[in-house]
């Protein structure tokens, strides 16, 4: 029900909560991240809804890789989204929403973990190499003729022998489709080339197995 062509419909508050998936997704899937982000900054509630729908699942899973504490991860997601909504007018331009969200989420999650670990709460170490385990993707599982079960096992074992940071970078690069620039920001590297080198060395270590 567009009132007129130049009167842009704007929605705020919780009204889009129950909008159907297709209603929100269709509007934004064709747009660039920069455009979607600009809409969000202008207070367009459907843009926020789109961002939430598209990334909250990936962010949650990522958080669970880092700390295995469901409640902490959800708390952190909540405070992060509340924060960017409150500051939306003052936020800068963003060309990769996913990279941006992963970066601030990772930072906030570490802050939260640090604050909550002060007590005696049980916590699985972040540096103990227990996170970001790799498994053959669903696509790979489907291509049975290319990969025997033994071959899959072999590659899985090889990849999981890498350090936690190496696995993390590899997952962010191959699975999450993030760039080295974004990975460097998320993993708090000063230089982009650190992320590139990390992956290069890891892959170099495994080239013998990969080339079989």
């Amino acid at each position: 029900m567009k009132k007129s062509q130049n009167n842009k419909s704007k929605s705020t508050s919780t009204e889009v909560l129950y909008m159907q998936h297709s209603q929100v997704m269709v509007v934004y899937t064709e747009k660039t991240d920069r455009e979607i982000w600009a809409s969000f900054k202008e207070g367009e509630e459907t843009a926020f809804n789109f961002i939430y729908r598209k990334y909250v699942g990936d962010l949650y899973n990522y958080g669970m890789q880092v700390c295995h504490e469901d409640e902490w991860v959800r708390d952190c997601l909540q405070s992060m989204f509340v924060d960017i909504r409150k500051r939306r007018k003052r936020l800068g331009d963003v060309t990769s929403i996913k990279g941006y969200l992963f970066t601030i989420f990772h930072r906030e999650l570490f802050k939260l973990i640090k604050a909550r670990r002060k007590g005696n709460e049980p916590f699985v170490s972040m540096d103990g190499g227990e996170q970001f385990y790799i498994e053959a993707s669903h696509e790979t599982k489907l291509i049975a003729e290319e990969f025997s079960d033994e071959r899959k096992k072999e590659i899985e074992i090889a990849l999981n022998q890498l350090s936690q940071r190496e696995r993390q970078a590899i997952i962010l690069l191959y699975q999450e489709d993030l760039s080295y620039k974004e990975i460097a920001a998320i993993m708090d590297f000063k230089e982009v080339k650190t992320a590139r080198t990390l992956v290069y060395r890891a892959m170099g270590k495994l080239k013998g197995i990969f080339k079989v």
């Binding site: 508050s13 919780t14 699942g57 899973n61 669970m64 890789q65 959800r74 790799i134 498994e135």
Partner: peptide, 24 residues
């Protein structure tokens, strides 16, 4: 194409909706 998370965690439908409501 091989690389995927071994232990993937998913938000339940309820957590997904609750979280959104709380954020807003």
């Amino acid at each position: 194409l091989f690389v995927d998370y071994k232990d993937k965690s998913f938000l339940s439908d309820k957590a997904y909706t609750d979280l959104y409501e709380n954020i807003v």
